[in-house]
Amino acid sequence: MNQKADSLVDKGGVWFSEPISTYAAQSDSLFYFILILSIIMFFAIGFVMFWFMIKYKRTEERPEADGQLIHSNFLEISWTVIPTILCLFVFYWGYKDFLTMSIPPVDAMEIRVTGQKWFWEFETADNGLKTTGEFAVPVNTPVKLIMTSKDVIHSLFVPNFRMKRDVVPNRYTRVWFEAEKTGSYKLFCTEYCGDAHSKMLATVHVLSDEDYEKWVDKNLSSDSVPLDVIGKKVFDVKCSICHSTDGSKKVGPTWKGLFGSKRVFEDGTSLVADDDYIKESINEPSAKIVSGYKGIPMTSFLGSVSDREIDGLIEYMKTLK
């Protein structure tokens, strides 16, 4: 999914990726301001230090210091007051931009975001469109994300937008952005959340108004798609991080040959994997834990996978012999 997305490294300057949101460029300019000040200060300090080291090098003829200046009110006051003023200025600038970033416009389009180990789900409030691992927004439109987590703390980060906010279980956090350029942008989870933290990625598509309509239509009309295709799609974004299809062992058991096979559980019982068992394992994973997988309990997918999607997953599983 991420391959299609815009490169962070190739586009933009040496420091940042290409600024896409309305507030990105403004925020970057504060960085460049601090950068220039820092370079000046760094070289000034370095220059004076090395100059003193050369000029006042200890020699046979000059074993002791030439002078013992130990106090100067003028110097002390100036190097206290000037950095303080600069710091307060930088503080104010950063605070002003931060307010812009944290207060969404009232007419913003709303998208609900749910973070769960280890994928992102997005639901557009206007049309009820639910997607996983990607979402689309129209260009030049303010968008507000209302986010929560189903398990541990995650954090939603889109470098191109200079936007980040933690996604916390049991409460809602908000961010907003307005993208100014069409394209696909990378989204990362930046709060450490376990084994596959580094694979908890998604893509934000910023589309022109016409493309956005098309995208919505295409994704809303999934009824005519064959079940096993729906299943594969769901598997790729929600299940593939922990389950393999080729027999290899990941966090959870492989799906290869799973359907119809005999499952042995931690408590010693066993049964043959049928439709009901699969559904239960998705909605209530801790009810029956396969022997050897007690370590990391799978988070329940109740509510985040529809009944139709579960049917799709079962059909897809049947194809994995």
């Binding site: 403004q26 960085f31 950063g94 954090s155």
Partner: peptide, 23 residues
């Protein structure tokens, strides 16, 4: 330490920290 300090100023700035936090 100067480099560490200057980048500390960057991270202490609210708007910049939003982007750079946890990177």
């Amino acid at each position: 330490f100067c480099i560490g300090g200057f980048t500390g100023i960057v991270l202490g700035s609210l708007s910049l920290d939003v982007n750079l936090h946890d990177t």
